[in-house]
Amino acid sequence: MDLALLRTFVTVHRAGSFTRAAALLGLSQPAVTSQIRALERQLGRPLFLRRARGVTPTTIGDELAHKVAPHLDALVEITGAGPDERSAERTLHMAGPPEFTARRALPALTPLVGQGLALRASFGSAEETLDGLAAGHHDLAISTARPRGGLLSSTPLCDEEHVLVAAPRWAARIGAAGGVQARGLRALEQLPVVEVHESLPLVSRYWAAVFDAKPAVAGTIIAPDLRAALACAAAGAGLAVLPRYLCEDALDTGEVVALLDPPVPPLRTYFLAVRAGTLALPHIARAHEWLLRAAVDW
């Protein structure tokens, strides 16, 4: 069986689209379509179902992808370096949420740079990073959503504790943790809200876990970056729900104050995801193992 056809097939399987696969392969879309049809004729079975937007693999297509993809990835790893290159010199493409990747993941991986690893990072939502990983744009993805299906595999990386914070003047006004403990949500109604999205994802999750309720207020400041939310909260803009790793220094210096210390703080799990079979590639396996070891202290 022609390896070029299998390479095209795996790329389409990961990209979910003939058009995206063509761009990744440097081919025309008709050429990709022709190669997939040729492979389907050889196998005598359809590999994809054509949809209005992209393609969906058949069960035969999924089975073939899971069998051949690891071997093709290994061949790319072997042939991608010339005989004079050190095998350790590879570029790792990773993706994840901007704040966690910047504060945790990238610093944890920098020691590998001295061992010949180059790093390229991109930021995005859980959906964006997992879609990019499946399409072959990334080697590793850090996500707050566990990927489904057999194409991607994931390992829990760490749990992120969420803290309800505000500037000291707001804390003094409501009586800080004692006021919230005594009066519940009524103590927080007078505070403006700083969030990363209009849907108030962090505040909603905290309210559900701690108060068994939904927030009844809208965001006063919406900034799609947790670091911006922290800066606004510290400047007195209102309350914010933030990961402890991000606001820990501000808590220690008194720039912000925890408004409540619940017995069981809300947690969110991060997952470290890869495409099935790619941990056979040494540079991906090394980074994967390094992150898991570093996460023990997170």
Rank of each mutant, 00 (worst) to 15 (best):
D84Q: 10
V203G: 00
V241Y: 05
L112M: 00
E255D: 11
L226W: 11
A231F: 06
D73K: 14
T33S: 11
G175M: 07
P262I: 11
P192D: 01
T253M: 07
V180L: 08
L27V: 02
E63T: 15
E255V: 07
A182W: 00
T278K: 05
G61F: 04
C158I: 11
A21R: 00
L202F: 02
A38R: 05
T56R: 15
E195G: 00
E189H: 15
D261F: 06
I222G: 05
G150Y: 06
V165H: 07
A108K: 09
V203W: 07
R90D: 03
G238S: 08
R148T: 15
A287H: 09
L25K: 03
A240L: 07
D212Q: 13
G132L: 06
V180G: 07
Q42V: 14
G54V: 00
D159K: 11
F9V: 10
Q190F: 02
R286I: 07
L3T: 13
V210D: 02
Q35P: 03
R20S: 15
Y245S: 11
L267G: 01
L3V: 14
L191N: 07
E127Y: 08
P46Y: 07
L140C: 01
T19K: 03
L133T: 08
L230S: 06
L291S: 01
S87Y: 13
L281W: 00
P224R: 14
A134I: 01
V210H: 05
G26C: 04
R173N: 05
A4I: 10
P243T: 13
E161G: 02
L251A: 05
D159C: 13
T11Y: 02
A229I: 13
F9C: 15
P97W: 02
G184S: 11
G54M: 01
S34H: 09
G54W: 04
G124C: 12
A141I: 15
I60R: 11
R186K: 08
W207I: 01
E198V: 09
S17T: 12
P282E: 04
F123Q: 10
G124W: 00
H93M: 13
M94V: 15
T278C: 08
L291N: 06
A237G: 12
P30N: 06
Y270Q: 11
